[in-house]
Simulated assay, not measured.
Amino acid sequence: MSDQTSEKSLLRRSLLDARKQLSDDELCASAQALAGQALALPELARAGMVAAYVSVGREPGTRTLIDALRARGVRVLLPVLLADNDLDWAAYDGPGHLVRAGRGLLEPDGPRLGPDAVTAADTVLLPGLAVDSRGMRLGRGGGSYDRVLARIEACGNAPALVVLLYADEVVARVPEEPHDHPVQAVVTPYGVTRFTA
């Protein structure tokens, strides 16, 4: 295990432990505030299609946000986890069309659009555990979104990449590896931080 990988593991554990301390009331209030901040983003205001995800457990809540985007007429794509940890995508047709899948995830029940469907998104909302002052994102370590970002880069599309986090998860620095991609913005319940290349 490299030093960077080991550092990432320690940081992930610390951030996940902090999320466990959040009360249900804090989670609910954060989800509402996060949706309000995100919906004001120009990247979402002008988007015709957004790749998002359904938050689970103690993740910053996304359900209010994805419902609001759908109500605006935005086509929302949600991930479907494949056996090899890659992601397929399907359109979000509302909360009644989510099914419980492996690892406790909620996935859309509609037709699968293929792993490349994400490359047509105007904005990609990414899960994460932290983002640093350079816009480098720390994910959970499964590599699913590393593949998504590599696929987007390979196709030549340049959607806005936005991470949704709690305020204390915007940190000075996260360990970086060659496959890591910077993001353009991070949204927390308290505001938006933008990064320049």
Rank of each mutant, 00 (worst) to 15 (best):
E7H: 14
E7R: 15
L10N: 10
S14E: 15
S14W: 11
L15H: 05
L15C: 06
D17S: 14
K20A: 09
D24G: 11
D24K: 12
D24H: 04
D25W: 11
D25Y: 08
E26S: 05
S30W: 01
L34Y: 01
A35Q: 08
Q37I: 11
L39F: 03
L39E: 04
P42G: 13
P42L: 12
E43N: 02
E43T: 07
E43R: 00
L44A: 11
L44F: 01
G48Y: 03
V50A: 01
Y53H: 05
V56M: 10
V56D: 09
G57T: 09
E59W: 13
P60E: 01
T64E: 14
L69I: 01
L69T: 03
R70Q: 04
A71H: 14
R72M: 10
G73K: 08
V74R: 00
V74H: 06
R75A: 04
L77E: 09
P79M: 12
D86C: 13
L87Y: 12
A90I: 00
A91E: 13
G94A: 05
H97P: 01
H97N: 10
L98N: 04
V99L: 07
V99Y: 03
A101F: 00
G102S: 13
G102Q: 15
R103L: 15
R103I: 14
L106S: 05
E107F: 05
E107G: 00
E107P: 02
P108H: 06
P108G: 05
G110H: 06
R112S: 13
R112T: 13
L113R: 14
G114H: 06
P115R: 09
D116K: 08
A117C: 04
A117W: 08
A117Q: 08
T119W: 03
T119Q: 05
T123A: 09
T123P: 11
V124D: 12
V131E: 06
D132I: 14
R134N: 14
M136W: 15
R137F: 04
G139E: 12
R140D: 12
G141I: 05
G142K: 04
G143M: 11
G143C: 02
D146G: 02
R147E: 10
R147L: 11
R147C: 07
L149V: 02
L149Y: 07
L149E: 00
A150L: 10
A150I: 09
C155Y: 09
A158V: 14
A160E: 15
V162N: 04
V162S: 02
V163K: 09
A167M: 07
E169Y: 06
E169S: 00
V170W: 06
V174G: 10
V174M: 09
P175Y: 13
E176F: 15
D180C: 09
H181V: 10
P182C: 00
V183K: 03
Q184C: 05
Q184S: 12
V186Q: 07
Y190T: 14
G191M: 05
V192I: 14
V192R: 15
V192G: 06
R194T: 11
F195Y: 12
